[in-house]
Design a protein around this nucleic acid. Sequence first.
RNA 1: GCCGCUGUGGCGAAAUGGCAGACGCAGGGGACUUAAAAUCCCCAGAUCGCAAGAUCGUGCGGGUUCAAGUCCCGCCAGCGGCACCA
Length: 916
Amino acid sequence: MARRQYPFHLIEPKWQQHWEAEQTFRAWNPGDQLPAAHPFALRHSLASAVARKESLPPKCYILDMFPYPSGAGLHVGHPEGYTATDILSRYRRAQGFNVLHPMGWDSFGLPAEQYAVRTGQHPRKTTEQNIANFTRQIRSLGFSYDWSRELATTDPEYFRWTQWIFLQLYHAWFNPETQRAEPISTLTYPADCQTEAQRRTFRDGKRLAYVSEAPVNWCPELGTVLANEEVIDGKSEVGGFPVIRKPMRQWMLRITAYAERLLADLDTIDWTDSLKEMQRNWIGKSQGALVTFAVAGVADAAITVFTTRPDTLFGATYMVLSPEHALVASLTTPDQAAAVREYQTFAAGRSDLERTELAKEKTGVFTGAFAINPVNGERIPIWIADYVLASYGTGAIMAVPAHDTRDFEFAAKFNLPVRQVVQPPDAKTPWQGFTDPGTAVNSSSAELSLDGLPTAEAKRAITAWLESRNLGRGTTNYKLRDWLFSRQRYWGEPFPLIWKRDADGTLYHEALPESALPVIPPPLDDYKPTADGRPPLARAADWVELPDGSIRETNTMPQWAGSCWYYLRYLDARSSSGFVGSDAESYWMKAPEAAPTLSASFRPSPGVDLYVGGTEHAVLHLLYARFWHKVLFDLGHVSTPEPFHRLVNQGLILGEDNQKMSKSRGNVVNPDDILKEFGADAFRLYEMFMGPLQDVKPWNTQGVAGVYKFLGRVWRLFIDEATESEFEQRCTVDPSRSAEFLTEVRLAPNVQDIPADPFHLKPLHSCIKKVTEDLEGLRFNTAISAMMIFVNEAIAWDVKPVAALKPFLQLLAPFAPHLAEDLWSRLHQSLGVSTPSLSYEPWPRFDPTLLVEDTLEIPVQVNGKLREVIRVPAAATNAELEAAALKAEKVLPFLAGKTIKKVIVVPRKLVNIAAV
RNA sequence: GCCGCUGUGGCGAAAUGGCAGACGCAGGGGACUUAAAAUCCCCAGAUCGCAAGAUCGUGCGGGUUCAAGUCCCGCCAGCGGCACCA
C-alpha cells in the first residue's frame, strides 16, 4: 500500500455523518415544512416556511438507474454513472435548483428466488441482506442522495402501487379513434354482443391487460416463461438455459397499441441517436400493403398477405404460409396432407435456436393448393415454410423470388419460377435477387400497367388500384409484439386478480378491489414450481382458494414491473393516499413555466432532467417504462407524455486486461478495495477522469493513484507541513486518537486573508470557466484536468490568498466533496468566521475581464506548416499581425526565393503565408 | 446481411476547420535522503542530427481548403444492437 496522501480515512466518514445528521441533501416537496436552519431554506429564504410550488426554486430531477442488489455487491461500473449524476446534482444545487436525486432498489429478481429454492431461505431475507450491503457500499461513496425517499420494489408499500397501476391497465382500453387509453367504461359494444357473457368476452379482448393462449417461450430450467426480449439465440438471457415454444395461458400488456406514439415521441426527447435508433428498430415500423389472394377451387377461402413491396405483385410466383397458419389444414389437398402434417410437426419441434442457426437452408412443403394472383389471375402454388413467421404481419407472404433474398433462396432450392419485375437503375446490376428500388417492368395487365414507373410510384399506383377493387389496402406494420407480462415465479408482484366460473361453467377473471391491495405472496416451504408446471404460488392452497369459491391468479409480474414507475414514486415516496401526490408530481415533472435564470445554459425540462444508466436497458426497461408512463398520462395520472427527457448511457468499464470484467477472467475490481486504499474522493475522481462518460474504457488502478496524488496536492496546497507531520507521528503512536489529533493540523502560514490580484485570479477564473462549461457538457474528465492545472500553478504561489482558494474548493466540491468540505471548514475556522454550507453556497461565476490577455502568442505558418510563434499585443490589427509575421526571424528563410501569393490572418489566432 | 458507434504516443486521453498529443499513468534524468519510499524540479510522438534544426506523423486511399484528427467520397478494422420481420 502506498503512503497515505492525506487522512481521507478520517475526513470521509466525518462528513458523511455530518450530511446525514443535517439532512443536507433532503429534497423538499410542495407542502413540506422547512426547518429553520437547513441550508437550503436559508439559501432560498424559506426558513420555517411551508414550501409552496411558487416559492420553491425551479426543480431539477437527476436520476440513476436503480440497481438490482445482487449478492456479489457493488461493481465498479455502478459508481460510474452514480458519480456523474452526483457531481451534476451538487452543481445544480449550488446553482440554486431544488434537486431531486434519489436512490432505491430493484429488488425482485431471480437470484434470491433460486437461492430460496436451494436453501429454503425466504427471498425477502436474502434481499434484505443484499440491500444492506449495497447501502453500505453506496453510502461510503458520499453520494448526495435524499435517502428519505429510498424505496425497494419488494416493499409491500411499494408494490401495492405497482399492482394498482396494473389495475389501471386492466381497467382501460386503447381507443383507436382518439389514439389514447380510456377507461373500459367508454367502450361501445357491437350489436351482436347481446348477453353479459358476450359483452364480457368482447371487453376482456380490449383491455390493455389481457389473457392470451398463444405459444410462449417456456424455460424448463427456470420454470417460467420469458418475454421475447429475454430470449437470446434460443436461450434464456438469465443463465443461458434452453427455451422451447409451448402454448400457455398468459397475461399480456397491449404495448403494440402504443407503437406509433412510442416511435413518434422519440423525436421529442433528448437521447442519443444510437439509443433512439435501437428503439426504432425494436418497434420496427414498416409501410406496405395488405393484398388478398383468392384460393383456386375454394370459393370462400382467401389469403391475405402483408408486403412492403406491392409494386412487385406481378412477380409473385408462389405463396408461403407459416406452418401455424389457420388456413393450412383446410387448403391442403389430400395427397399432400401427410407431408404437410409431417412438416408442421417438424417446424413445431424446432427451437428458435435451430430456426435461426439453420436459417441458411430453407425448408418447406407444397400444400397442393393454388392461389389466384389478383393482378393477372395467374395460378400460383401455395407452400408452407418456417421462414415465414406466424407472428409477423398476417403469417403469410406472396413470394417474389426475383426481388427478395429469402424467396430467391427458397425458389432456388425448390425449383420455383423467378420472374423479373424490377429493373435495377444500373444496367450492369443483375436483376436476380435485386431488392433495392428500381423501375417496374413486366408488370402489365389489361387493366393496369406499372411498367416504367420508379418503385415508389409503382407502390402508390398498385396500392390505389388494389384499394379501388377492394383487393387490398395500404397499411403499416410493426415488429413490436405485445408484452408477455406473467411469470411462473414466487419472488414477484402477485396479480391483483381472481378467477371465477359463470353459470355456464366458463372461467373468467375479475380484478380485486383497490382495498385488497397490496396482495402479498404467501410464505411457502418450497419455492419450486409444482411438478405439473404450475407456478410456486399454486402450492399455497389456502391462499389461492377464496371462501366464495373463486381462486387467485398464481402468476407473478416480471421484474420490469417495479422499474416501470419507480421514478414516479420517488417524487412522493411515502404517500399512502396514491402512487404519487399530484402536487409533487406536477412540481417535479412539469417544466417550470418561467424559470428564473439560474443558469445560462440549462433550463429544467418536462420529466426527469437527466437519467443515467447502462445500454443494457436500451430497449426493455426504457420502452416498457415509456409505455406505462403514456398509459398513466392518458388516464390523467401524470402530466407529461414522456418520463425521461434526457438520457445518457455510461460506457462500460473493462478490466485492466481490456476484457469485460467477469469472475471467470479474474479481472473484477472490487470498489471496497479501492476505497480502502485511496478513499471515496479519489475513487470518484478516477472514475470521472478515465475518459468521457459515454465511452467504454479499461480500469487502471495506477490511474487511481494519479488522481489520489492530485488530491494530496490539494491537501498540501492548504495544509501546514509541520503540524501535518506532527499529526502523522502522533497517529503512529496512538491511532485510536487520530480524529482528535487531526483537529490540531493547521493551515499553511502562506494561506492568507489578503486581497487577491490578477496574478492569482486569472488562473482561478479560467478554471471556473472551464469547469462550469465542462459540467454542462458532462465532460468531467476535462473539468478535472482544468482543476489539476490550477493546483499545479497555485501550489507554487508564495502567498495564497483565501479569496482565490475558496472558489476553487467550490469547484472541487462536486467531484471530491469530502476533501472540499474539510478544507472549506478549516479555512473558515482559521478566519474565525462561521462556515456556510458548501453544498448550498452559490456557484462561482467567472469574470471575463480577468481572462483578457494583453499580449498573444500567434503561430505563423508558411504554406500551412508552423515556422514560428510570435508574441504581439492583443490589440494588434490584422495589418500589424501580417507585418510582424512577414519579418519573423525563422519565417524568412522559408520565404526566400518565393513569391508571396496570399497572407491569411485569423484575428487573435494565426497567420498563414501562402508562397510559391 | 442491415443499423449505429469508435479508430490519435508505450497506456487512459485532449483539441469552436487554425500551434496535434492539454491533463494524467507508465518511463528516463536530477534534487532531498546514509538509503529507500514519499515529495519537488526537468525530459519525454517517430526518424535523422553533437546541436541548431529538418522530415514524417491522428486506421487506409482519394478529395475540398491558404489550412483537415475535425468537412466530403470510397475502403479496412474493432465494439454494440438487430437479424428469415416479407
